[in-house]
């Protein structure tokens, strides 16, 4: 059996800030519909990898392609338009806008605006709480509601590839469970998901593939169940 052609192909990418190299000659292929989890200690390049894919951080070497089309040096707004959506760490909501206005900003691009009515219903169906909160100013939401608004806003773009940066960060366990149930449903609907977490057993049982990122390089990748059976890896890279 051959693997399907990758939807996202990252080849030998080096990236960082100023003179500081954060991603060191890193490669990763993501198949359509695949759920890839990227784990590793803080400050080792997980968020930078997502930012490099979404165009916020330029790659100094290497290439990134989406469905065979090179997007390496495109602007972030062009990369969203191409179909990769990045839900950033810490939500980064538009604090003075309502939940509904935040969601509508997700449908800012013309192709997303054309679908915004239907997508808004989809988002409300997935996250019914947002429907109740739609008139509320984003800065007054609880942490869980903020996270849901951030993810809902990302879904409004209609991107084929959904990148989530630490969706469990700072949330109570019960809310984290809700967020991961949502991720399950998004996966079941056929979306390609790239998810970054510091360390969460919750993702090992869900992800098709777990990649361990350490010092800007992938040191291991494989199934989540397999990683659970490798205590030495967990010990070395994820602190047990």
């Amino acid at each position: 059996m051959t693997r399907p052609a990758p939807l996202v192909a990252i080849k030998n990418v080096t990236a960082g800030y100023g003179g500081l190299v954060v991603l060191d000659n890193l490669s990763l292929d993501i198949a359509p519909g695949e759920f890839v989890a990227i784990v590793g200690p803080n400050g080792h390049g997980k968020s930078t990898l997502l930012k490099t894919i979404s165009g916020l951080v330029p790659a100094s070497r290497g290439s990134i392609a989406l469905a065979g089309v090179d997007i390496t040096h495109k602007r972030p707004d062009r990369i969203v338009a191409a179909g990769i959506v990045h839900v950033p760490q810490g939500d980064m909501l538009f604090a003075d806008m309502t939940v509904l206005e935040n969601l509508r900003m997700g449908a800012y691009l013309p192709q997303a605006a054309a679908e915004s009515g239907r997508r808004l219903e989809e988002v409300f169906a997935l996250l019914p709480k947002l429907r109740d909160r739609r008139g509320q100013i984003a800065s007054t939401l609880s942490g869980g509601e903020r996270r849901m608004t951030g993810i809902g806003r990302g879904l409004m773009t209609g991107g084929k590839v959904l990148m989530l940066d630490e969706p469990s960060l700072g949330l109570a366990p019960i809310v984290i469970d809700q967020i991961y149930e949502l991720v399950d449903r998004l996966k079941a609907s056929g979306r390609t998901i790239v998810l970054v977490e510091e360390n969460a057993a919750r993702i090992f049982e869900r992800a098709d593939r777990v990649c361990l990122l350490d010092n800007g390089r992938f040191v291991w990748s494989g199934g989540g169940a397999e990683l659970m059976r490798r205590p030495e890896l967990l010990e070395t890279y994820l602190g047990g």
Binding site: P76, D77, A95, R153
Partner: peptide, 12 residues
Amino acid sequence: QNREAAELMGVH
């Protein structure tokens, strides 16, 4: 309100 988030939503 949030430059990076605006970029990620497709704002140039």
